[in-house]
């Protein structure tokens, strides 16, 4: 039986144009890494088919220890307040090697 440790997975689904900004915020908040997956779909911004630069989405994943979470969520909320459309959800995940997630990228 493996030892699994609790972490938080933050998932953000939003327009590709926000990628650099999100990466900057996530680095700033001390995340150990992130993963970006290309996405398409539809929602409050209409259909995002991925054909042009304007309607390409990304699904952005970050695993962080619970203590560092609220800073990142503040940043995401700030983006939403400015008018950007983001789908943000936090899930509980269980990971191997938790020490990996405490090391910041910077």
């Amino acid at each position: 039986m493996h030892r699994l440790f609790p972490e938080k997975l933050v998932t953000v689904i939003t327009s590709d144009v926000l990628e650099e900004h999100l990466v900057g915020r996530v680095r700033h908040r001390g995340a150990s890494g992130y993963t970006i997956v290309r996405a398409r779909g539809a929602g409050s911004s209409g259909e995002q088919s991925g054909m042009l630069d304007i309607d390409t989405n990304i699904k952005f994943h970050v695993i962080m220890p619970p203590e560092r979470l609220s800073g990142l969520l503040d940043d995401l909320e700030q983006l939403i307040n400015k008018g950007h459309h983001l789908t943000v959800f936090v899930s509980d995940v269980s990971v191997l090697s938790p020490e990996k997630y405490s090391e910041s990228m910077e």
């Binding site: 327009s15 926000l18 042009l52 630069d53 304007i54 400015k82 008018g83 950007h84 459309h85």
Partner: peptide, 14 residues
């Protein structure tokens, strides 16, 4: 319709 829309999406989200 290629270059300006993403720029506006980022800069003028309202």
């Amino acid at each position: 319709y290629i270059a300006v829309p993403p720029a506006m999406r980022l800069a003028v989200p309202e």
